[in-house]
Structures are given as structure tokens and as C-alpha cells.
Nucleic acid binder design. Structure first.
Lengths: 151, 151
DNA sequence: TGTTATTGGTGCGATGTCGTACTATACAGT
DNA sequence: ACTGTATAGTACGACATCGCACCAATAACA
């Protein structure tokens, strides 16, 4: 592959980086003071994917170091949004369970975010976004596997 | 807009976050020890877009805080990859100019990265990536403007 | 069963990023 | 010209993330 074809890959990395920056800043500006997108992400994952996940499962889901997830979970626990219980199937491990306060936090955040997505939807429809997702997800899956193989 | 349509937006943020994580880790693993993707990005920008850019232009291009760009540029300067000169048109400002060593750094990095993109290209063609770019760029542009308006 | 390698989680130090405050310069309105 | 406001860059402190080292528990295997 000649260097002339590298352009698109770098352009993708660039766009993804910028969107991530703006998106994170956008969301965090509408989240209660000391809560970050990472906190919101974990709570959402517990609701949408599976409650009672282990810290390692969460770290893998968000592709962050396990120490980072420990830190994020400690913050959520301090706010009383999650509860750490021992994992009945593995004494090394734990399970992360959402509390009612955690549910409430997510509901409130969604309410705060609603007007933002309202405005966004008028300029870039959710259908268009949905149409972009399969390719993005496949690309993510490809580099994810590539990463494991080159480990 | 009902909440059922929020899904795609969150999914996009999620995918973008993961791709950013994996992509950054991937690139950084192949960059000389203490150089980061942010350094590579700045040098690339100076080559591809415009040499002699001001720190603020760079900060805006990558959507990072200006203090972050100061830090990144200090690193590049310490390595002798860029040179800071006074901006002839504005005494508050500076200009960032690439040195031959900076050029060399970028060439070397691209060489290191080549096999990676080789492997990637076999599984996800640069044409497919190129096809994704217009929508991503437009989405980026939309949220960028939205951000300014809500400032 | 005993030994070794692997995995889940945490403590710790290093560092990248950010927000705030500050200085110097530029610009706008009078 | 003068005065208030905005902008470019930096210093500093706060903190999120990471890699490394470590321990406990599990898995692999002889």
C-alpha cells in the first residue's frame, strides 16, 4: 500500500479525535459538577447492557486501563450510584450494581441533555447518525482484533 | 424528539470514544518513547496544512485547551522538532515553524506506522474509510458550530 | 497434588489535560 | 487619545488516565 492511501486513515483518526473532544466537553458541561462522561458511560452500560458487570468487563467495554476503571468506580460509589458486591463465582472479582440513586442520576442527566439533542437533531438527523454506525462499529471491531493479534 | 431516537447519538459517542482510545494507543506504541499522538498531530498539521501556524490556531484545530497546546509545543521544542518565533503581525502571538529534525521525525514515524496500516488495509480498505469521512466531517462541523452558539 | 502461569483488583508515581488567574498586546467605541 | 473589552500566551494547581508493582485467587498442567 502506497503512502498516498494513508490519508484517509489519518483523517479518520483526526475526525474521531475532534468529535470525541467536542462530544465529551458538551456532555460534561451538562452533567452535575464532579461527574464525568466516564461515570455516565458506566451507569448507562449497567442499565443498557448488563447490571452486575465486573470492573474488568467495564474496563474492556470502554477500552480503558483497569486502574482507570477502579478510579471511576470509586467515584460512582462515593456518590452512592453503584454498589460493589463480591462476585459469587470468583473470589478475586467483584460485581458492580446500580442503586436507585444511580438510576436517578441517569434519568436526570438524560433530561438535562434533551434540549441539546433536540437542537442537534434539527441539523443532523438521528437517522443519518444511525446510518454511519455499522461502518464505524465494524472499523472499531477490526482495529480491536488487530490490536489483540499484535499484542 | 422522543428519547427513543437518542440511541444513535450515544452510540456514535461510544464508538468514537473507543476508536479514539484504540487508535491513540496503537499509534503511541509505535512512536519514539516520550512522543505522543498530539505531537505527531501537530507536526503533521504543520506539514500538511500550514507551517508557521500560531499556538492558538493549533489549539483550535485540535480542539484542545490553549494550555494543553503550550505544553505539547514545549515538548516538541525540547526535542528540537519545532522552533517558536515571534509573530511579526501580532506581538502577543508566536509562530510555530518546523525544523528539519521535525520533518525527519514525521518521516520516521510514517515508516514505523507503515506495516500497521498495511495490515489494517487488508481488513478495512482505505476506500471504505474515505467513504465514511464526509459524514463524519459534517457531523463534526455541526457540533462544532452548535458548541459556539451555546457558548 | 503441587507447581507455574494467568487473571482481577488496588496502591502508587508519572504525566497529559484542563480551568483559573495573570500579563501583555490589540481592538472598539467614545 | 482614552478607556474598556477581547485575545495570545504562560504559570499554577487539580485531577483523570496510565504503567508498574503487588497480592489474592484461579487455571493449566505435570
Amino acid at each position: 500500500m502506497a503512502n498516498d492511501n494513508l490519508g484517509p486513515y489519518f483523517a479518520l483518526i483526526y475526525e474521531v479525535g475532534i468529535i470525541n473532544q467536542i462530544g465529551t466537553a458538551f456532555l460534561e458541561a451538562r452533567l452535575p459538577g464532579d461527574l464525568l462522561v466516564s461515570h455516565f458511560g458506566v451507569v448507562s452500560h449497567l442499565i443498557r447492557v448488563c447490571d452486575g458487570a465486573t470492573p474488568m468487563e467495564l474496563a474492556r467495554a470502554f477500552q480503558v486501563a483497569k486502574t482507570t476503571m477502579t478510579h471511576t468506580l470509586a467515584g460512582l460509589e462515593k456518590h452512592g450510584f453503584v454498589e460493589m458486591r463480591p462476585n459469587p463465582g470468583d473470589k478475586r472479582s467483584k460485581q458492580v450494581w446500580l442503586t436507585p440513586a444511580g438510576q436517578q442520576f441517569r434519568d436526570d442527566a438524560l433530561t438535562q441533555l434533551a434540549p441539546l439533542f433536540e437542537a442537534l437533531g434539527e441539523r443532523f438527523s438521528s437517522e443519518r447518525v444511525a446510518a454511519m454506525l455499522p461502518d464505524l462499529a465494524e472499523f472499531r471491531s477490526v482495529i480491536d482484533r488487530l490490536r489483540d493479534e499484535m499484542k
